[in-house]
Amino acid sequence: MLFNPERYHVDPHEVEGIELQVHKSKASLILHRMHPSEIKPGKGRENWDVGGIVAYSKICTHVGCPISLNERTTHHLLCPCHQSTFDLTDSGRVVFGPAGRPLPQLPLEVDEQGYLVAQSDFTEPVGPSYWERDYDEPW
């Protein structure tokens, strides 16, 4: 989206300078490919991958570092700041470290032109926790 503004009708000033930084700190993505049989899809997430390609928010749910250390064989993602480890085969579940919530997953599909696109926005807020995070959740 960010680097192809015309296609998505994004205002060009949105993709430079501070606006770009603000977007990057929320919209950064990890695209990860594994064998489709390795994915343990969560409830309602059965069709969120495309042939083993999954997309997760890159922003850690602990304090917001971009997670970037990929353990290739286990498909675990480790945050270099405080070592929270997320399992990308299992809905971004936290398998180790201080992060309290799984990584938000972006549902993927292929559009009619063959591009990999998102089915929708993230279904939950990305990044670190905050007080009002669950305001919209029924409780």
């Binding site: 936290v94 201080p98 309290g100 926790s129 905050y130 995070r133 669950d134 305001y135």
Partner: peptide, 17 residues
């Protein structure tokens, strides 16, 4: 911050990290 267990409370619509 690194060694604390992943304690987060979600209660009454608010989040306590």
């Amino acid at each position: 911050l690194r060694i604390i267990p992943p304690w987060e409370t979600h209660i009454w619509g608010v989040t306590l990290s």
